[in-house]
Design a protein around this nucleic acid. Sequence first.
RNA 1: GUCGAAUUCGUCUAACGGUUAGGACACAAGGUUUUCAUCCUUGCAAUAGCGGUUCGAUUCCGCUAUUCGAUGCCA
Length: 493
Amino acid sequence: MKVRVRYAPSPTGYQHIGGLRTALFNFLYAKANGGDFILRIEDTDQTRYFDGALEDIYETFNWLGISYDEGPEKDGGFGPYIQSQRTELYQKYAKQLVESGHAYYCYCDSGRLERIKKIQEANKMAPGYDRRCRDLSPEEVEELKASGIQPVIRFKAPLEGKTVFEDEILGRIEVENSTLQDFVLLKSDGFPTYHLANIIDDHMMQITHVLRAQEWIPSTPSHVLLYKAFGWEPPKFCHMPMVMGEDGKKLSKRHGATQVIEFRKNGYLPEALLNFISLLGWSYNDKDEFFTMEQLQKIFDIKRINTSPAIFDYKKLMHFNGVYIRQSSIERLVDLTLPHYIEAGLVSKEPTAEEMAFLKKLMPLVQERLELINQAPEFSDFFFGELPPYKTWEMIVPKNVEKAKVVEILSDIRKVVEADFDVKEDKDLEQQLYELSKKHEVKAGAVFMPLRIAITGINKSPEMFPVMHVIGKEVSLKRIDNAIEKLKQEIAG
RNA sequence: GUCGAAUUCGUCUAACGGUUAGGACACAAGGUUUUCAUCCUUGCAAUAGCGGUUCGAUUCCGCUAUUCGAUGCCA
């Protein structure tokens, strides 16, 4: 039988890491097994609906290269794929369950529900609905109907026995039916709950495997019972370990960035995020960690999904991002960093050909120290303009060296640049600077550091001559002259 | 409280019942005759505890502890 899996987000907010992991694993499982990946929107909670959510799902998929075989605007014969467009179906099946004796109307309002909850808490009893409406007499039902209260439909959970299911990852899981609730199937506003809609759709859409996070394990027995009540065969369940924050608790906003859109904004590459997330609760073997999406679609195997929760390690993600940035082409990095340069005011809004060429020239020098795309401007602002923003100045005078001597050294460097900058290789120019250090009887660093500060205004920079060749001879000389001038003034003043 | 699941270096993880328990991130030290970064080398560091089964247990079983999750007219 053809594998059919689905990702079924509810549009209540932006896509987050946990959801992405679920989507990815479903997608990979489908692709690795020649199956179909279905996107279904579970918008059954009208009160929590968030307007930009749908667009965000599409954008997230698009950014990461996850595509669905069936879903909204891509009908595979099982649509519609948006649950709010299927409410009649759910209502029909809910009523069917009432008629078959598997469910019942409940007229208890939220006020009463809250009261019994408080009593249960006070008496340290297990919380839950007390099943008052489960066995109402016909007269009582008539009375309640007449009162005008909109009822909900609740599932009539068996009071005894056990419900068992075989999880593909965790193995056999069984619970006593007595611990199960008479959960709501259809809300008083006519919309189904997750449990009802999910089961009906999974069945109707012929889903073969349900891959979801372990937080769903407690409700799975109820789902199994629902399938049974309908007389349907349940799909196979695969409960994946949860993704946690650094404190070991379910990943959420307070752990920092958790929304996919934030990672995108913060300068992560899609392939880095994807690769990193693929390793959350899954592994290929004992040594390979770097995979392309294409590889993952071939090698992903459900048997290698873990059983224990995984903490989301931002540092390791960062490392992955650095690796992927270093592997990127210069053209792509220019593309990706351009908006950040514009935002920083280093490049004009409508970049000229010269500006683009300039970015392309400096990019190799930025690439290897970049861990996030949006770090590019701060790592390379000194390339722009006549003079650099002097973020460091004191270090232009190395330890145990007189200011006057630094002026001499810089003047000598200036001569080298003036004479040989265009005709000699970087290596030859460097060699001349080493000779200068011998001449002035200082360490090589005492020659390079003043030059570095003069040219870049920072003490941590790429190698000097490549930088100077990007900014050009004229600007380089101007910056050296400026530094000499400033030093002279300091000596005089 | 009740129910469920989980437990290998700080973190992500590997290990047909037989390995000096491996790799990666992080961290530390060193090297790459200029800083930073890259790259390379080395180091640090784990089977939650107690019982069983077995010639042999990280691996199988039980108990305890701890952690997480669920316990909504949320999903």
